[in-house]
């Protein structure tokens, strides 16, 4: 679908836990063909200290209702302000932006690894990939049990594994310490990941060593989101690429990791 600048109606703003909120936005225009990894660039209103829009990955889409869901984690002033928005408010946004993850083939066995707000495109991918749930594993990492969002409505799409730095839920440690990653990686032929840079780099390096297909969704700072400011570039094997238009999803083979 064509990229547009539009006022979306905020239908719901639900606090999931201390720092995570789920926003449901209704588009004034029909929505079509939205895939995991794509994002929306949202204006933060009534915040003079915030000049640029803030990009958020798509968590879910309802084409019938013309709605999109976002997972907003408070990371700074912009995300904080957005989580203070009320249902009924309009939110100006540029949508849809970016290229999605490569959807898996029917015969694939995939591992989805999400950290922080990077969980959003992983859950979206689990939901729409159309694979047998036995072939979909979702590994989610967070600092502590209280930082994890409730994924019970996604349980039917795959097997879920958790890691927390303090051991309060699932395995203690990082996602890369979880047995599903450290011991059983050979079970999978594709890895998809979105989350903190260090997490994705650790995953990407392992995938490269083991020669497993791996796509990562980068979060480089951007000003525009549609390829004109050239600020969000990633230094790839073929030169600087815009994370907003050439990505945000990249195959690790193309990166200098």
């Amino acid at each position: 679908m064509k990229k547009t600048v539009n006022d979306f109606l905020l239908l719901e703003n639900k606090q999931l836990n201390k720092d995570n909120f789920q926003l449901l936005l209704q588009s004034p225009l029909p929505i079509s063909d939205i895939y995991p990894g794509q994002f929306i660039n949202v204006e933060i209103k009534e915040a003079s200290e915030i000049f640029l829009r803030r990009p958020f990955s798509i968590l879910d889409v309802d084409y019938q209702e013309q709605t999109i869901s976002l997972l907003v984690k408070i990371l700074g002033r912009g995300s904080k302000k957005l989580t203070e928005a009320h249902a009924g408010q309009t939110i100006n946004a540029i949508f849809p932006l970016g290229k999605s993850f490569t959807l898996p083939d029917k015969s694939d066995r995939i591992l989805l690894i999400g950290g922080g707000s990077g969980v959003a495109p992983m859950l979206f991918l689990a939901k729409i990939c159309g694979l047998d749930p036995a072939n979909v594993s979702v590994l989610i990492g967070a600092r502590s049990a209280s930082d994890h969002i409730d994924v019970s409505s996604y349980r039917n799409y795959g097997q879920f594994y958790f890691a927390t730095e303090d051991g309060s839920l699932g395995e203690k440690g990082y996602v890369t310490n979880h047995p599903v990653f450290s011991d059983q990686l050979d079970k999978f032929n594709k890895i998809y990941t979105c989350g903190p840079d260090l997490m994705m780099k650790a995953i990407g390096k392992t995938a490269l060593e083991k020669d497993i297909f791996c796509e990562v969704s980068l979060e480089n700072m951007m000003a525009c989101g549609f390829g004109v400011c050239l600020c969000c570039v990633e230094d790839t094997k073929t030169g600087h690429k815009c994370v907003c238009t050439d990505g945000p999803v990249f195959n690790v083979n193309d990166l200098k990791w």
Partner: peptide, 10 residues
Amino acid sequence: AYPRMAETPS
């Protein structure tokens, strides 16, 4: 090289 951008007041 990245980073090439910083948001500043206004």
